[in-house]
Design a binder for these strands. Structure first.
Lengths: 193, 193
DNA sequence: TGACTGACTCTAATTACCAGAGTTAGCTTT
DNA sequence: AAAGCTAACTCTGGTAATTAGAGTCAGTCA
């Protein structure tokens, strides 16, 4: 298993990264989401080696992000395509591209990849909005708090975040401030989102 | 270098993942963005080993995502905090959390982490909108096209994406459809966003 | 017959990762 | 004064994953 502890980790961030697997798998998902379907195309596009590509496709399939379909029988030939669940990762790709653009990693010529609205042909972006009203939320108004699924470790984590201007954390009550981390060395039995 | 080719890869997705490094580094960034600052807290929170934590903090610092500050002199003590550039990764964390919630990895109890607007206390979400007008864009209207920074490899990649309902790709012109991938095995000299 | 395609698997060398012990420098307790 | 503690690491040895590249297999095409 790649880097043990990621699966039972009670944090969506860890869980999603765990489901993807690693950077190679993410690149492969990128290509699949862009419409590439064949093994050899995937290999050429991502530059990954055979062993790794084969392994990652297996993992992605097991994790329900990708589906393997036979498209020809005489010599058996297969292709891969993202599942509905896998297609949710488009949001991740958009975020990654947007961050890359902010960092202007694309030098000065602009982004290599441009997400658009196909109806209008206009460029799109991700915006943080109020979950109910869809009103825009400013970047410096963003905060975090433990959700209903937060476990002891997540609560501890958030309790360590001081209320600085540059920190994201918000605490409803400033309960007991210190105390050692709960479950200090047992990550295998944790269950956070 | 971890997994060689990621740096000169002309794709924002690869570039951002390359700058982060790996899953451990991402978890560390998560904790830093939540306000954790001290080495030992980071270790306990993420469950990473000393060697890996130390190495990742160094890499993140080199990549300009994290800053190492001395906060005490007599015994020299250091803390870590995200830079402005590192704080851009909040978008990534939001995307990851939102995907995790969609997958309801958090079982039934809700997400462990809840992004909010600190003014109002309301929950927030990421929405795809038109870059100029900020009008919402439906999920199935999302497309991609090569940007100005696209290199030969990116263009090839997008040319392989058939115009299926489940594919994301849009092509302005349906130029030459086939042809072998350009630069088929030279990933080190590529330069796409 | 010979070349070729697609989807892999195999091998050997390199590289990364893990748990856990050890280090350094000063402070605090007995 | 000796023992223990804290913070921020580094080191070690063993296990596991990754790499480049060669090889395989079933069938098609010229």
């Amino acid at each position: 298993m790649r880097s043990k502890g990621f699966e039972g980790m009670a944090c969506s961030i860890a869980a999603v990264m765990g489901a993807i697997g690693d950077r190679w798998a993410l690149l492969i998902m990128r290509d699949l989401l862009l419409g590439i379907r064949r093994y050899d195309d995937l290999r050429q596009s991502s530059g990954v080696t055979n062993a790794t590509l084969s392994d990652r496709l297996k993992l992605l399939t097991e994790n329900g992000l990708v589906e393997r379909r036979q498209y020809q029988t005489r010599p058996e030939r297969f292709e891969y395509q993202p599942t509905e669940k896998g297609r949710d990762l488009n949001l991740l790709m958009q975020a990654l591209v947007q961050i890359g653009d902010q960092w202007n990693l694309s030098s000065l010529e602009g982004p290599p990849l441009d997400f658009i609205d196909r109806r209008t042909g206009h460029g799109v972006k991700l915006m943080t909005v109020d979950r109910e009203t869809s009103e825009p939320v400013e970047r410096d108004q963003l905060g975090v708090r433990p959700g209903r699924g937060a476990d002891a470790l997540m609560t501890w984590r958030l309790s360590r975040g001081p209320e600085r201007a540059d920190a994201l954390v918000i605490r409803s009550d400033r309960s007991q401030d210190a105390g050692p981390p709960p479950v200090p060395d047992d990550h295998s039995s944790a269950s956070n989102p």
